[in-house]
Nucleic acid binder design. Structure first.
Lengths: 214, 214
DNA sequence: CGCAGTGATGAGACAAAGTCCCATCACTGG
DNA sequence: CCAGTGATGGGACTTTGTCTCATCACTGCG
């Protein structure tokens, strides 16, 4: 799966530094609680595994309490899928594609946007690490599958609003998701700072070519 | 989703009646504990909803204890996805397809098998009821998404073993899953005893035709 | 007829997930 | 200096899921 990735930890460095005077009272009241929790969780999951990590462990490492964890995340799995801006990003990109674009070209437009905003070279290592944690645990893969389904539904809707017939929209969204997954697999293996958008376009072409051989 | 359906409750009426003499000592030691639990669960989920139903509630309605529930099912969700013979059924059907068949024809072969063995007219109402329960709850949809993923992976493997190239196998499996989902949507709406296999073949044709319009 | 063995079950203790309520603390504005 | 706001902490509570051990039904054997 490649679409439903990272979104938490995206709004990272921003506030920090406004009130560096009152550091004594402890980590509490320090900003970015959600980000700290997400980072602490990824670290712990990578160290000891998802199931050997307690929500309390995560909260403690972030200098927070259990209550605060559940105030920021619906459940333990969600800490790795937090942000979720991916959805809107793809929908907007599909809507913004030229009116003359075919469904799959509109999807390619969306994958470009993902490459520009999310799957950046700077985040590659972090995202791959996160993906490894997810792949290692059934509960997390389950959540990822659901997110992916939601993403496909969003893309399908976005295509329909361009006037694409229902079934065609569904097929295009599904093929786009598959291409994205394949592109992500290739991209996370590249040691170099390869551009995700290029890889994704290539993957989309490959997928489209394969449909003729079915 | 249509592929990952029913499997529990499939080995239903069989043993019953061998020891109808000792009925007094209570439901215990009555056979088919798993089936009784699955039916009790579906009834309760339909009545009060998944989240308002306790595992203990389910066990009690089946005349069993909590321990026995978790002895038969990994977790609360799994009670609706129990059997799981679907996987092997599709894999075997794909392997058994004529060597001359294209990937999608092999998949069509698998959907035929599903229509013959699982999505029978007699089970239509029950399956639709179960699907409604799943659709009404995020946790259950999540599990369904994971099962669907596993099914796609199985079909992909089965196609690869026929000598189909990796990417083509993946695309064919994905398109087959989509066709199956669409076929299931259509089939569960038909009041008549329509044949799932026919609907599925039609859906597969529709999907294939749509790929040309992307 | 009785007696030990097997297998499914039940009961209860336990850890962790998730929910809820309320007190507390940091900071804000008057 | 004081009241208000919002994020936090703590703890009680329910439920899920695990584990261990005793129990019961039925089986086969002497």
């Amino acid at each position: 799966m490649g679409l439903c990735l990272i979104t938490a930890v995206i709004t990272v460095a921003q506030v920090h530094g406004t009130k560096s005077r009152t550091l004594l009272p402890m980590a509490r009241w320090e900003p970015n609680a959600a980000e700290r929790l997400a980072h602490a969780a990824l670290d712990l999951f990578a160290e000891r595994g998802y199931e050997n990590t307690t929500v309390i462990d995560i909260a403690q490492r972030a200098g927070l309490g259990k209550s605060t964890f559940f105030r920021h995340f619906q459940d333990k799995r969600e800490v790795l899928f937090g942000g979720g801006a991916m959805d809107g990003l793809l929908v907007e990109a599909i809507a913004a594609a030229p009116a003359t674009a075919t469904p799959l070209e509109a999807v390619a437009h969306a994958l470009d946007a993902a490459g520009r905003e999310v799957f950046t070279p700077a985040r590659r290592e972090f995202i791959a690490r996160r993906q490894a944690v997810i792949a290692a645990n059934p509960e997390l893969r389950e959540r990822e599958a659901l997110k992916n389904l939601a993403l496909i539904a969003s893309m399908t809707d976005a295509l329909r609003q361009r006037g694409v017939p229902d079934l065609t929209a569904r097929v295009a969204a599904e093929l786009g998701a598959l291409a994205s997954t394949i592109a992500f697999e290739r991209w996370s293996r590249t040691a170099t700072g390869d551009d995700f958008s290029e890889i994704a376009r290539q993957a989309l072409d490959d997928v489209q070519a394969s449909t003729s051989l079915c």
